[in-house]
Amino acid sequence: MEERIREIILKHSDRDAKLLGILHDIQDEFGYIPREAIDIVAEWLSISPGEVYDTASFYSFFRFKKAKHVIRVCNGIVCNLKGSEEIIRAIKERYGIKEGGVSEDGLFALEIVECIGRCDGPPAMLVDDDSYGNLTPQRALEILRGYEE
C-alpha cells in the first residue's frame, strides 16, 4: 500500500493544488481513505497528520470505511418532490443498509446527498461516477443489480 500511495503523491508533485487531488486518487485506488494513507501523505507534504485528516473529514465525499460501490441518492428539493424517498426506502430494504452505512458484504455504501445537478431527470442518483435519472424504485434496483458481481 505504501508504495502505491507514494506513486500517487509523486504524480501530483508538479501541481500547485495537491491535497484534494491526492485524496481523490487514494480513494479511487482503495475505495476509501485508509488510516496509513493519512500519515504517509502528511509526511510527504510536510504537514501534520491532523491537518490532512482535518481537510479529508470536512468533505463528505471522502470516506473512511471501505465499500466496493457508493450509491449516492439525491434527496435535493426537486428529487424529493418527485419521489426520492421511495427510492431510498427501496434500496435500504433490498440491501439492508442504513443511511451512511455499508452493506454487510461490503458491496454497497448508501449515502443520501443534496442536489447532484440532474434536476431535469428526477429522482436521480449516482453510483460511483455514473449518474442515473428518472428513477422508479424498480429501475433503481435493476441498475444496482448490474453492480452486484
Binding site: D16, K18, L20, T55, Y59, S60, F62, V113, E114
Partner: peptide, 27 residues
C-alpha cells in the same frame, strides 16, 4: 490550467471557501 475536483461541500462554491479548498484546507 490545472483541474481541481471538489469533494462534496456546498459552501466550497463560495469564492473564498473554494480558494481554501484549492489550497488543500477545509472549505
Amino acid at each position: 490550467i490545472e483541474l481541481v475536483i471538489g469533494a462534496g461541500s456546498y459552501v466550497c462554491g463560495e469564492e473564498t471557501a473554494l480558494m481554501e479548498s484549492i489550497e488543500g484546507k477545509r472549505g
